[in-house]
Computed example of a mutant assay.
Amino acid sequence: MSSSDYLLISRGQWEESASKEDVQDAIDRFYVWYEKGLADGVLKPGSRLENRGRQVSRSGITDGPFAEAKELVGGYWFIVADSLDHAAQIAAQNPCLAFGLTLEIRPLEAARARADVATNETPATWRSQEG
């Protein structure tokens, strides 16, 4: 079976009840896990995201991001795995999960976008019209 790349998105915030020392320990263990994953070829480089940003739409450009705290994206990385389940098993080893962060794993879509193919951007009303 050939391997594919999966996007790993880190979401949320640290639990308020956690001590800064415990969170720092999890962060330190994350970097050990991350560096080992890079060396083993199961992770590819990603990055933490800064707090500042811009939101661009047809209405213009505004300051952002505007997500709820539980939806905030803190960073992204890539996992190399044989399947989505395998990618999730790799992500489940991330030490930061113990303190409130959640990880979203998404397969990368190789095909170009098309309006007649249902995607994340397709409105529900369009989907119900497909037949």
Rank of each mutant, 00 (worst) to 15 (best):
L49I: 10
L49V: 07
E50D: 13
E50L: 15
N51K: 14
N51G: 15
R52E: 13
R52S: 14
R52V: 13
R52T: 14
R52A: 15
G53L: 05
G53S: 03
R54T: 08
R54F: 10
Q55Y: 08
Q55C: 12
Q55W: 06
Q55A: 10
Q55P: 02
V56Y: 09
V56W: 09
S57G: 11
S57C: 10
R58M: 11
R58Y: 02
G60C: 07
G60T: 14
G60V: 13
G60P: 11
G60S: 06
G60Q: 06
G60E: 01
G60A: 01
G60D: 04
G60I: 13
I61H: 04
I61V: 15
I61Q: 10
I61R: 11
T62R: 08
D63Q: 11
D63V: 08
D63F: 08
G64F: 06
G64I: 00
G64E: 03
G64W: 08
P65F: 00
P65L: 01
P65Q: 00
P65K: 00
A67V: 02
A67E: 07
A67K: 02
E68S: 07
A69Q: 11
K70D: 05
K70L: 08
K70C: 02
K70I: 11
E71T: 12
E71N: 10
L72I: 07
L72D: 06
L72Y: 11
V73W: 03
V73R: 09
G74C: 13
G74V: 14
G74M: 12
G75E: 05
G75D: 05
W77C: 03
I79S: 05
V80P: 02
A81D: 04
A81G: 03
A81L: 05
D82I: 05
D82E: 15
D82C: 01
D82M: 05
